[in-house]
């Protein structure tokens, strides 16, 4: 066996050790994350907390447990935009919400909510559809720091123009500025928008279902996972959904065969909106 390993191979070992150390020290399993994007995030964390070395980052992770929230933040879903991909929110408004309106109580699970941009987008949609009073949004993320940010609902003001355009393109009935105030270079969303939102930590690699939902949104999260973990998530979403419940994924996600296997039929395949089939009942826990 050759003893000459080049730095790419060494870095591969470091990444494996990092994953192993995260699992054994903190109980978080990243072994089913797509390696290329995981390595990129580990490198960024190593630059910030390990002087550029993943080995040094591992040392700090092991000996400084207070670093964990920052590590989880660096390894979890990145921030989004309000009404990102307006056509999707338009379709939710036009096609999905009218179907949900028949339910006396509407539960929505947004898995991987990051800083909450899409949570508040949903809340606005529900508000404008007159459904918010009987809706409950469960917004979950792996990162507690992200959840704190999401709960605050404060964003850089520079996002406002784009978000306002997105809101209009998504079919917004009023003006985006009705829902926020601008001060000191920051955009603060109306706190009333979160009156029916519950923010909670949930780990898609390990945790089970926790609600019965009419709609699950999980956008641009599965792209970070390998196939087995994607399948786990799709099964989890199916089991969390009522019959005929809706699933909305990211625009470039390709759940393909795995989604069909998990009993999802496309409502609008281009927009990655699916519906749980009626044929199969959910797994009983």
């Amino acid at each position: 066996m050759s003893h000459v390993l080049d730095e790419i191979e060494l870095e591969g070992i470091e990444l494996d050790l990092f994953v192993e150390a995260m699992r054994r020290r903190h109980g978080y399993d990243f072994s089913q994350y797509a390696p290329a994007s995981l390595l990129r995030r580990a490198r960024l964390l190593a630059e910030r907390h390990g002087g550029g070395s993943i080995s040094a980052l591992i040392h700090r992770m092991l000996h400084e447990p207070e670093l964990l929230p920052q590590l989880l933040e660096g390894l979890s879903v990145p921030a989004s935009d309000m009404f990102r991909d307006p056509s999707v929110f338009h379709a939710l408004r036009e096609q999905v919400l009218p179907m949900l309106a028949s339910h006396p109580q509407i539960n929505i699970w947004q898995a991987g909510c990051a800083h909450g941009e899409e949570v508040y987008s949903l809340a606005i949609l529900l508000e404008e559809a007159g459904l918010y009073e009987r809706s409950q949004i469960f917004a979950t993320d792996l990162s507690t720091r992200a959840l704190e940010r999401a709960h605050e609902g404060i964003y850089p003001l520079r996002s406002a123009q784009q978000w306002s355009r997105n809101y209009v393109a998504a079919g917004g009935l009023h003006s985006f500025s009705n829902y926020c105030s601008a001060r000191y270079g920051l955009l603060k969303l109306d706190r009333r928008l979160r009156r029916n939102v519950t923010f909670a930590q949930h780990n898609l690699t390990a945790d089970e279902m926790f609600c019965e939902a009419q709609l699950v949104l999980c956008r641009n999260v599965l792209i970070y996972f390998t196939n087995p973990l994607q399948q786990r998530c799709l099964a989890l979403f199916r089991d969390s959904l009522v019959r005929d419940g809706f699933l909305c994924l990211g625009l470039r996600e390709r759940p393909g065969a795995a989604a069909a296997e998990a009993d999802f039929a496309p409502v609008d395949a281009n927009l990655r909106i699916y519906r749980r089939g009626a044929a199969m009942s959910g797994r009983r826990l």
Binding site: A36, R40, P78
Partner: peptide, 21 residues
């Protein structure tokens, strides 16, 4: 590379997308 996503190549020569900043 699709619009709005980073495109990465895995060591086994498959594509991975990322919505990182």
């Amino acid at each position: 590379a699709p619009a709005g996503y980073h495109l990465l190549v895995e060591r086994d020569f498959h594509f991975t997308l990322s919505a990182d900043p």
